[in-house]
Design a protein around this nucleic acid. Structure first.
Length: 494
RNA sequence: GGGCCGUUAACUCAGCUGGUAGAGUAUCUGACUUUUAAUCAGAGAGUCGCGCGUUCGAUCCGCGCACGGCCCA
């Protein structure tokens, strides 16, 4: 027998009493016809001249609040449209139903029929002519004013968080709108949505620690994908000129306010485009998205103002290091001095790391966090861009950009390398120069090389972190606030 | 992995110099047919995260562990 505390036991006792009165505690026969906030919109409460809809209304929802007067009561009901007030009187519903009403708990679902009116204080309200109990709640809801604050409970029991914290519901509604907007935006531009494998025999497309798994029937090891890139490019080879995928990537690395082991990426590829055209597209898409979601291009994030109005600032990596970090150009021009500079600044570098890697690490440490308004950084060292096309005039840098906003990387894009000989060489170099890290498994994907040998049209491709984009547009400090069920350690039994 | 902080009733939080625990909400009982943090009267509700230690005595001090948060790597 479960050991129940007082409140849980009282709820169960009341449930039994209701059952004894002939109430089906978990019925599924009531069909709501109206959304609560649709017939009782918040603006109607503000505006005394707002005309309430006439006729009988049929709603269903969870009881969030109750104010009882003995023979009458007000309740606040909540459904997916929002909240609204209902009024019940013993005279209106009769003694039998009112007895059942007296057994209701906050948290129960009920269905109500009635008509709309305004109370003496002007609050639009549904006057109940009859109601039906729909679902019993056996646990008490969190406190009605303070809500649920304990972040651990909010993440572990997100259903509670969503139930009682309307602003959390809004964040996830916006997340859905963001993804829908991006889909429509790309489809309008003749991009086709595709799905590529989540389980890869070779972990490729990015340098990251993968999760490993095993297929029993085939007796083969597999990796959860760290990026879909190599498969999407195969589709360019196959003849789909514009493709995109919005899906999960998995990286077996630490957790932080910006990292969850599974996260959502948009990747898209466009044949005959260059990284410069993708900068234009990115500016246009994200600024339009901000208008769609927040009706403004000037948003607040963590107390600072961020202006998403295009055009956005552009720097080459060297320009950013000189102008923002104040590093002398002569250091950047000399591979030995760059590595020495990194070491002087306590940046740990792998023994085989070259000047490009050092430059990137210096950038991460001295520049990244200072890029608050959206900023494109271009001319990345080719050394750290194994899948990108080299610049025609300066092959030491790649035709690549990354986008930074609020000190965070938001997007990474480049003109794609489509020379199979060069690609094979660069991937083999990557394997050869792999670090001492035992948890990454660099391996050349020779089928990808073979695909390039058939000929991939020139193209540009980009990845945008959807979670970080959602953070930006919902003013959320932690990635856990935009992921419905963020990764947590197992709950310890209390 | 390191540093700092947190964990007390279902929820939000107090708890002094170590002396065996409090409030509001929620719940229960009673009153109340237009409230909206409804009101009024009364009541019940706790393994003070877990373990060990110090002490006559630990929610409080020390050590360890678990979970979480923030910062750093």
């Amino acid at each position: 027998m479960e050991d129940l505390n007082e409140i849980l036991q009282q709820r169960r006792d009341k449930a039994q009493e209701m059952a004894d009165l002939g109430v089906d505690l978990y019925s599924n026969t009531f069909k709501p016809l109206h959304g609560i906030a649709d017939i009782l919109p918040p603006e109607a409460a503000e505006d005394p001249d707002f005309a309430l809809s006439a006729g009988e209304k049929t709603i269903a929802g969870r009881i969030m609040l109750m104010r009882s007067f003995g023979k009458a009561a007000f309740m606040t009901l909540q459904d997916s449209s929002g909240r609204g007030q209902v009024y019940i009187r013993k005279n209106d519903v009769g003694e039998d139903l009112f007895n059942i009403f007296n057994k209701l708990d906050i948290g129960d679902f009920i269905g109500c029929k009635g008509t709309l009116f305004r109370t003496q204080k002007g609050e639009p309200t549904l006057k109940i002519s009859t109601f039906k109990h729909i679902t019993k709640s056996l646990r008490p809801l969190p406190e009605k004013h303070q809500g649920l604050k304990d972040v651990e409970v909010r993440y572990r029991q997100r259903y509670l968080d969503l139930m009682v914290n309307p602003e959390v519901r809004d964040v996830f509604k916006k997340r859905g709108q963001i993804i829908r907007f991006i889909r429509e935006y790309l489809e309008e531009r003749d991009y086709m949505e595709v799905e590529t494998p989540m389980m890869h025999p070779i972990s490729g497309g990015a340098t990251a620690k993968p999760f490993q798994t095993h297929h029993n029937a085939l007796d083969m090891d597999l990796y959860l994908r760290v990026a879909p890139e190599l498969y999407l490019k195969r589709l360019l080879v196959g003849g789909f000129d514009r493709v995109f995928e919005i899906n999960r990537n998995f990286r077996n690395e630490g957790l932080s306010t910006r990292h969850n082991p599974e996260f959502t990426m948009l990747e898209f590829y466009q044949a005959y485009a260059t990284y410069e055209e993708l900068m234009e597209l990115t500016e246009d898409m994200i600024s339009a998205l901000s208008m769609e979601i927040n009706n403004t291009m000037v948003i607040e994030f963590e107390g600072q103002e961020v202006d998403l109005t295009p055009p956005w600032k552009r720097y080459t990596m060297d320009e950013a290091l000189v102008e923002i970090a104040g590093i002398k150009q002569e250091i950047l021009d000399d591979p030995e001095k760059i590595i020495a500079f990194a070491k002087e600044n306590h940046i740990e570098l792998d023994a085989k790391a070259g000047p490009g890697k050092a430059k990137m690490e210096i950038f991460d440490q001295f520049v990244e966090e200072k890029l608050i308004n959206p900023t494109f950084i271009t001319a990345y060292p080719t050394e750290v861009s194994p899948l990108a096309r080299c610049n025609d005039d300066d092959p030491t840098v790649a035709d690549r950009f990354e986008l930074f906003v609020t000190g965070r990387e938001l997007a990474n894009a480049f003109s794609e390398l489509n020379d199979p000989i060069d690609q094979r060489y660069r991937l083999e170099q990557q394997v050869e120069h792999r670090g001492e890290d035992e948890e990454i498994f660099p391996e050349v994907d020779y089928d990808f090389i073979r695909a390039l040998e058939y000929g991939m049209p020139p193209a540009a491709g980009e990845g945008i972190g959807i979670d970080r984009l959602a953070m930006l547009l919902t003013n959320s400090a932690s990635i856990r606030d935009v992921i419905l069920f963020p990764h947590m350690r197992p709950e310890t039994k209390k």
